[in-house]
């Protein structure tokens, strides 16, 4: 297998990806290419494989890849352990962030950042500059500094958990951020705050893959490309207008066409 990507202009290149859980196939030949700085949205009805795609890209051990390849920043993603993918700059904002009782946010993020720096052969931050960095990032995503001193996600409200994911994203500065149904369970105000946070993190060298069921989030995070995932395959791609069309007609026409 070649060690460098055949598609250098792409940050992420997913080719004929097949994956599933135990013997049940879920993804059945995903094709997806994302350039640096682009924002892609993946929409689709429930059960189409949206969350599976984000889990497989991040390396969740529950899923098995049966075919295909994924290139990330010129390296073969599927050969990496989940933690190596993270250190290489892939970040997943979880739909349901887990609680880690007794583990302080500071300790957690400091360890994560340290690992990333080690991986990138950079000098780790000392305690003082780490705290300054942490403070700056908390301000950037408007995370209440009190949350920063608590245990990871423990006793956080739904909105606070999502904002905490954004904060971690801001801290780790990924090349690709995958947002897995970040809008689920958020009211409109919380949604706007999260979207603002994401927009603030947009940059020419950071790409986003926004996974959502509803068009609503895309009013605030305007994507460059919208894909429709149905039954494990991307059946349609287009610009932001595609999301509006889906909003208008629902997923039924898609289902009828690709059943």
């Amino acid at each position: 297998m070649p060690m460098t990507s055949p598609n250098p202009p792409f940050l992420l290149s997913v080719n004929q990806l097949h994956a599933g859980i135990e013997d049940k196939p879920i993804l059945k030949g995903i094709e997806l290419k994302i350039k640096p700085g682009e924002v892609h949205a993946i929409m689709g009805p429930n059960g189409s494989g949206k969350s599976t795609l984000s889990s497989v890209l991040a390396g969740h051990p529950q899923y098995t890849v049966t075919r295909g390849e994924v290139w990330f920043n010129g390296k073969s993603l599927l050969e990496m352990e989940p933690e190596v993918r993270a250190r290489e700059g892939l970040f997943l904002a979880f739909q349901y962030p887990v609680e880690l009782p007794g583990v302080s946010m500071t300790n957690f993020m400091k360890t994560a950042l340290q690992e990333q720096y080690l991986h990138q052969e950079r000098e780790p931050l000392n305690a003082k500059s780490y705290l300054a960095y942490q403070k700056q990032k908390q301000a950037e995503v408007q995370l209440d500094s009190r949350l920063g001193s608590r245990s990871v996600n423990e006793g956080f409200s739904g909105g606070e958990k999502k904002r905490n994911e954004l904060y971690q994203m801001a801290m780790l500065q990924p090349k690709l951020a995958i947002l897995d149904e970040t809008d689920s369970g958020l009211d409109i105000d919380a949604l706007k705050i999260v979207a603002q946070g994401v927009n603030a993190l947009r940059s020419p060298d950071r790409s986003f893959l926004v996974i959502t069921h509803y068009q609503r989030l895309l009013e605030y995070i305007v994507p460059d490309v919208v894909h429709v995932l149905y039954n494990g395959v991307i059946v349609q791609s287009g610009d932001a207008a595609l999301a509006l069309e889906l909003e208008k007609h629902g997923y039924d026409p898609i289902k009828a066409r690709f059943q």
């Binding site: 051990p61 250190r87 957690f108 360890t111």
Partner: peptide, 20 residues
């Protein structure tokens, strides 16, 4: 998995969770 997705290897993750 949450810890690993942030770049911690499994042993670090267990140590962190247990110490917490």
């Amino acid at each position: 998995f949450y810890c690993r997705q942030r770049g911690l290897d499994p042993e670090q993750a267990v140590a962190l969770i247990v110490n917490g």
